[in-house]
Design a protein around this nucleic acid. Structure first.
Lengths: 203, 203
DNA sequence: ATAACACTTGATTGATCGTTCAATCATCGA
DNA sequence: TCGATGATTGAACGATCAATCAAGTGTTAT
C-alpha cells in the first residue's frame, strides 16, 4: 500500500489556504496557522522550509483544484460552450454572496499582495491565471463559427478573466455586487454582439 | 502670508504614498517611512494618530489628485469623449512600461490588501473607485447618441474601470503587457460595436 | 533486538513591529 | 523677557514575527 500523503502537511495546507484567503498572506501569522491547524511549529518547518514555500504549496493546490472543483461542474451544468462563461461568472457570484462580499479571488488577492515581494511566488500565480485562461479558451474554440472568424479567442478568454477579477475587486470595497453585475452585463452585451456578427458571417 | 501646510506632514505622505505603492501597506514598516522621509517617529505620530490614519491620508491624496493629474491631461489631449477612454488606458499602460510592470494601481492594490482588515479604510477606497467611474461616466454622457440609447452608461463606465484593474492585475504576475493589451483590444471591439449600433439607430 | 529514519514537540531565538512619551527646541504674542 | 504653544527628538516598550533545534516519539526494515 502506498504511504498516504502526510495528513499533517494537508492539514497545514488546508488551514493556510483558508487563512490566506480570509486575511491575506502577510497578515496571517505562522502562529495562527499552527493554532488553527493544531500543529506545532517544528512540524510545519519539517514540511515546508519557510513561509514562502508554504504559499507556493497553497498556490499549487489551487492549480490542481481548478478543473475538478471549478471547470468540470460548470461543464456538466451547461452544455453550451459560450453560456459556460456566464455560468462560471454566476458561480463566482454565488461565492461572493455566500461570503458577504468579504473575500475575493484568492489568486487575485495574492497577485497584488506578494508578486513583487516574493519573486519565487510570481510564476505560480501566473500559472494559475494561465490555467483559467486556457480552460476558458477551450470553450471558445468549441464554439467554432458561433464567434466571428476575426475574433481573437485567446484575447477573449483573457478578457473574461479580466472582467471577473476587475469586477470582484470593486465588490470588495463597494460592499455590494453592483460593480460585478454591471461588468458582467457589459460582457454579456459584447458576447451577444459577437454572436450576431458571426451569424451574419455564416450566411 | 498664510502658514504653509505642514511640510513634515507632506513629506510623510509623499514617502508613505510611494512605499505603499512599491511594497504594499503591511509590508511597509513605519521605520522605513521614517528613514526615507527623514523624520522621527514622534513627528509622525504627532501628524497621524496611527498607521491606519496615515493610510487614509494617502487615499485622500489620491482622491484629490485624480482630476488634476489623471483626468484633466487626458481631456486636454483628446477631444473625442469616447476616445478619451482609450487615451486613459494608454496613459495607464505607459505607467506600467515606465515601472517595468512591477507596480500596479495603487488603489487596486490596497483594495485587495486591507479592505477587510481595516474597515475604516474601505469607504476611502470605494470613494476613489467611484470618482474614477464618475469621471468616465461624464465622457460617456458627453458622447450622447454616439452610444445606443439602450446602453447603460453607468455600467459601461464601471466596465472600463473593471477592465483596467483586471488587466493590470494579470500584468503584475505575467511580467508582460499582453493581458492588458488583449483586454483593452476586446474593450475597443465592444465600443466599436456599440458605435455601429448607435449609427444604425440614428438613421 | 536494534539501528535507521521520519516526524513531532515546544521552548527559545533575535529581529522587527507599531507605538509611547518625557524632554527639548523653535516661534510667537504680550 | 517671559510664558505658551506646537513641533521635533530619539530612546524605550511590549508584542509579535518567522524561524530554530535539541530532545523525544513512533514506525519500519533488518
Amino acid at each position: 500500500m502506498p504511504a498516504p500523503v502526510s495528513e499533517t502537511r494537508d492539514k497545514i495546507l488546508d488551514t493556510a489556504m483558508r487563512l490566506f484567503l480570509e486575511q491575506g498572506f502577510q497578515a496571517t501569522g505562522i502562529s495562527t496557522i499552527l493554532r488553527e491547524a493544531g500543529v506545532h511549529s517544528g512540524s510545519l518547518y519539517h514540511a515546508f522550509p519557510n513561509k514562502e514555500a508554504l504559499l507556493v504549496g497553497v498556490l499549487q493546490r489551487y492549480q490542481a483544484g481548478l478543473r475538478p472543483i471549478v471547470m468540470d461542474p460548470v461543464e456538466q451544468a451547461e452544455p453550451d460552450p459560450l453560456e459556460r462563461i456566464f455560468t462560471l461568472l454566476a458561480w463566482y457570484r454565488s461565492n461572493m454572496v455566500a461570503t458577504g462580499c468579504r473575500l475575493g479571488c484568492p489568486i487575485g488577492n495574492l497577485a497584488l499582495e506578494v508578486s513583487d515581494t516574493y519573486p519565487a511566488v510570481r510564476p505560480e500565480i501566473d500559472k494559475n491565471f494561465e490555467n483559467w485562461a486556457d480552460a476558458i479558451l477551450e470553450w471558445l474554440e468549441e464554439a467554432g463559427d458561433r464567434l466571428p472568424a476575426s475574433c481573437d479567442r485567446r484575447a477573449l478568454s483573457r478578457f473574461v478573466l479580466t472582467v471577473m477579477e476587475g469586477g470582484l475587486m470593486q465588490v470588495r470595497t463597494h460592499d455590494s455586487l453592483e460593480p460585478f453585475d454591471q461588468s458582467v452585463a457589459q460582457l454579456r452585451a459584447y458576447v451577444e454582439a459577437l454572436r450576431v456578427q458571426a451569424d451574419g458571417e455564416r450566411q
